[in-house]
Design a protein around this nucleic acid. Structure first.
Lengths: 219, 219
DNA sequence: TAGATTGTTAATCGATTAACAATC
DNA sequence: TAGATTGTTAATCGATTAACAATC
C-alpha cells in the first residue's frame, strides 16, 4: 500500500469495478483476474491492477482477486461501507426519479430529506419522505448529518441552492442543473448534466444525413 | 483548420464552451477571449484555444472570439445546427423528467417518440407525445429518422432495449441504467449513470465522522 | 503605433501500457 | 513443479501548458 495522490480517472473507475464485481458476486463467482475484468470492461488489465494497487494488495499472485473481499475493500475506499446521507432539493420529476432509484439501491447512500421552494410542493409525499420547505434545510442537514446535496432545480435556481447547501455544511454536491456552480474549493462538485452528455454524443453521429442543404464551405 | 483525430476530452469540453457562450450571448456580450473563458470555466486559456483550433480559425488575433459566431460554429461541430431526433424507452419518472427538460431546451435535439414495454404505460400521454408499445420502435425510428436512443428502463432490461435500438438503426445511445451494454463498435454509447457519479463523489468526502459508536466528547 | 490575443510549436506533465520478477 | 497472475518498474503514449511569432 502506498499513499500517492490518486488521480480522478482512477476514482471514476472504482464504481465501475464495483458494478462488475457485484454482478459476479450475484452469480456466486469466487475469484476474478484482472484479465477477466479487463475483457468485461474493455480496459487494460495492467491498468486495473495498478488502480487497485494504489489502495492495497488486494489480489493473490497466481490466483486473482477474491470477489467479495474486493467488493468490501472498494466500498471502504469509496466510504460506502458506512451509510452516507444525502439531501435533495427540487421535488420535480427528476427529484422523484432519483428518490425512487435510491429506494432500490443496495449502496449505503440514502436520500433522507427532500426540499422544495414552491409552496404547492411542500408537504407532498415522496416514498416515505415528505417535501420540506427550504428554511428547514440548515437544521435538517445538521441534525441528520447529511454530507451530500443533490440539486434538481431549474438552472437559474441552482447557484442559490448550492449556496444554501454549502452554508448548511455539506461536503459534496451532485448537480443536475446545466449551470456552472461557484463554491469554495473545499466543496466537491460533480455535474450530472445529461444535456451535455447528449450534445457530445451528437458529435459522434456518423451516418450521412440528407437534410443538409448548403454545403458551401470552400476555402 | 486541420483534421487531426480529436480526443474525447476535447469533445466533452465543447458543450461546456457552448453553455458559457450561450450565457454570454443572453447578456449580449459580443466578444470573449480565451483568457475570460478560462476564468469562467477554470480551464487553461491555451487549452481552450487549442481545442477550438482543431476545428477552425474562429478567433481574431488581438481581439478574441465573436460570441454568436463561435456558438454557431460549435453547434455545427456538434451537429446540433440541424435537428437531431431522439427516441426514449422507459416512461417512468426519469423518462418523464427528460421529456420535460427537452421541452424547454433550445438545442436542436428533440425527443420525438417514447416507448415502454408495460401495457399500463402504453397510450398514456407525455407532453404532446403518447407512449408507444415496443413493437412500434423499428417502424417509428425508421420513419422519423431517429438517430439517438435514450434508455431509462431498469438495468436488467437495458441490454434488451439497447439491442432493439441497434437493430432499428440508431447511431448512438444515452444509457441511464447502471448496466454495461454490449453493442457493435459502430454504435456510440454514453453512460449517464448517476449512481456512479454519487459513488465517486463519496470518495472525496473528507470531514471526519463520529459514527463510530462510542465517541465521548473529548477535546 | 502599442497593447492584446490568437494559433501553433515545443516543453512538460501525467496517465496508460508493457514487461517481468515475485510468488501463489 | 509448472502455470498463472499479481504488484511494480520502466517505456510509451497522449494531453496539458508554456512560450512566442503573427497580426488585429
Amino acid at each position: 500500500m502506498k499513499q500517492a495522490k490518486i488521480s480522478e480517472a482512477v476514482v471514476r473507475r472504482l464504481p465501475i469495478y464495483l458494478q462488475v464485481l457485484n454482478e459476479l458476486d450475484v452469480r456466486e463467482v469466487q475469484t476474478v483476474s484482472s484479465q477477466e475484468l479487463g475483457v468485461k470492461l474493455d480496459l487494460n488489465p495492467a491498468q486495473i491492477r495498478k488502480d487497485l494497487a494504489y489502495f492495497g494488495d488486494f489480489g493473490r499472485k497466481g490466483v486473482g482477486y477474491n470477489v467479495t473481499y474486493l467488493i468490501e475493500k472498494i466500498r471502504q475506499i469509496l466510504k460506502v461501507d458506512q451509510t452516507i446521507k444525502v439531501a435533495l432539493v427540487g421535488a420535480g420529476n427528476l427529484g422523484h426519479a432519483l428518490c425512487n432509484y435510491n429506494k432500490y439501491s443496495k449502496d449505503n447512500m440514502q436520500i433522507t430529506a427532500v426540499f422544495d421552494a414552491h409552496p404547492d410542493k411542500i408537504g407532498t409525499p415522496i416514498n416515505n419522505l415528505v417535501v420540506l420547505p427550504m428554511h428547514e434545510l440548515p437544521r435538517v442537514v445538521a441534525e441528520q448529518n447529511i454530507r451530500i446535496g443533490i440539486i434538481t432545480v431549474p438552472s437559474h435556481e441552482a447557484q442559490n441552492v448550492a449556496n444554501q447547501f454549502v452554508e448548511a455544511g455539506v461536503e459534496g454536491i451532485l448537480n443536475f442543473a446545466p449551470a456552472i456552480l461557484r463554491t469554495p474549493d473545499s466543496i466537491r462538485i460533480h455535474n450530472a448534466d445529461f444535456t451535455k452528455e447528449l450534445l457530445s454524443l451528437a458529435y459522434y453521429l456518423v451516418r450521412e444525413r440528407e437534410d443538409e442543404q448548403d454545403e458551401s464551405d470552400l476555402d
